[in-house]
Computed example of a mutant assay.
Amino acid sequence: MTKIKICGLMTIEDIDAVNQAKPDFAGFIFAGGRHHIDLDQAIKLREHLDPRIISVGVFVDAPIEEILKAVNSGAISIVQLHGNESEEVVDYLHDKNIKVIQVFNPTDEKFNTGADYTMLDSDSGEILDWKNLLIIPDILAGSINSANVDKAIKIVKPKIIDVSRGVETNGKKDINKIRQIVNEVHNS
């Protein structure tokens, strides 16, 4: 069964929605942008999150101390590296028994195979050309929504689908869209 991560959670209402839909992973973004939250917010959201849902923290070239603080606080269980982090950073996190998702985009010529999961994301908001991927990722992201998730799973066969904006209406998480895509992925 393919799993799913709902990323970019920011509010208690977002947490309530994922608690009802039961995705496998929930993502908190510490990397700036529209979905950015701080550690105090993430701790509060994690307290409300169903303990069976694994929390992931998204970082872009963050200081290792910041990453460790988020893990040690209990806000997150897995670290997602979305920048230009080196293999040494991945190795250091592994030495601390922290699982790592390393994110790549289709133009990357090499990728870190030391991570627990590789994730392919378009970084452009565009749908990837799934039929011509050079990297077959563990996790697939990039403009995925209910209308195209079945096709993405059939073509790429990722272990995990990652969505954020694809489950939003007017810039906010939409419980109906979350429920629908979680059901589609879990039944694929």
Results as ranks from 00 to 15, higher is better:
Asp123Gly: 06
His82Ile: 07
Pro158Met: 04
Lys69Leu: 14
Asn183Arg: 11
Asp14Ser: 07
Lys157Tyr: 07
Asp121Trp: 05
Phe59Gln: 04
Ile175Cys: 11
Ser143His: 10
Asp61Trp: 15
Ile54Ser: 02
Ile12Met: 03
Lys110Asp: 05
Arg46Lys: 12
Ser86Asn: 13
Ile67Asn: 00
Glu109Leu: 07
Ala31Glu: 02
Ala17Lys: 02
Ile6Glu: 00
Ala42Tyr: 02
Leu134Thr: 08
Arg165Asn: 14
Asp108Phe: 04
Ala70His: 04
Asn187Cys: 11
Tyr92Ile: 03
Lys177Leu: 07
Gly32Gln: 09
Val18Ser: 06
Val60Tyr: 00
Ile139Arg: 01
Ser55Leu: 01
Ser55Met: 00
Thr2Cys: 14
Asp108Arg: 11
Leu128His: 04
His186Asn: 11
Ala70Ile: 06
Ala147Lys: 15
Thr2Pro: 10
Lys3Ile: 08
Pro158Val: 07
Gly114Leu: 09
Pro51Phe: 07
Gly57Phe: 05
Asp38Ser: 09
Ile98Val: 12
Asp14Val: 03
Val100Ala: 12
Gln80Ile: 06
Leu45Gly: 00
Gly32Asn: 08
Ala75Ile: 02
Ile6Met: 06
Val185Glu: 00
Leu133Gly: 05
Ile54Cys: 06
Ile43His: 01
Pro23Ala: 03
Glu126Gln: 15
Val103Trp: 04
Asp16Trp: 12
Gly166Ala: 13
Leu49Glu: 09
Glu66Lys: 15
Asp95Val: 01
Ile139Ala: 08
Phe28Glu: 01
Asn112Trp: 02
Ala70Ser: 14
Leu140Tyr: 03
Val56Tyr: 01
Arg46Val: 01
Leu120Pro: 02
Asn183Cys: 09
Gly32Glu: 08
Lys96Trp: 08
Gly114Lys: 14
Glu88Tyr: 14
Ile139Gly: 03
Ala21Arg: 02
Tyr117Ser: 06
Ser77Thr: 15
Lys151Phe: 14
Glu66Ser: 15
Ile29Gly: 01
His186Met: 04
Asp116Asn: 15
Gln80Ser: 09
Ile178Tyr: 05
Leu120Ala: 03
Glu88Arg: 15
Met119Thr: 05
Gly27Val: 11
Asp174Gly: 10
Ile67Asp: 01
Asn112Tyr: 02
Glu65Leu: 13
Ile4Met: 08
Phe111Gln: 14
Phe25Gly: 05
Val89Asn: 05
Asn97Phe: 10
Asn187Asp: 12
Lys110Asn: 13
Ile144Gly: 01
Pro106Phe: 13
Ala115Phe: 06
Glu184Gln: 15
Lys5Asn: 00
Ala31Leu: 04
Gly114Arg: 10
Asp50Ile: 00
Asp24Gln: 13
Val89Ser: 08
Asp16Pro: 06
Ile178Ser: 03
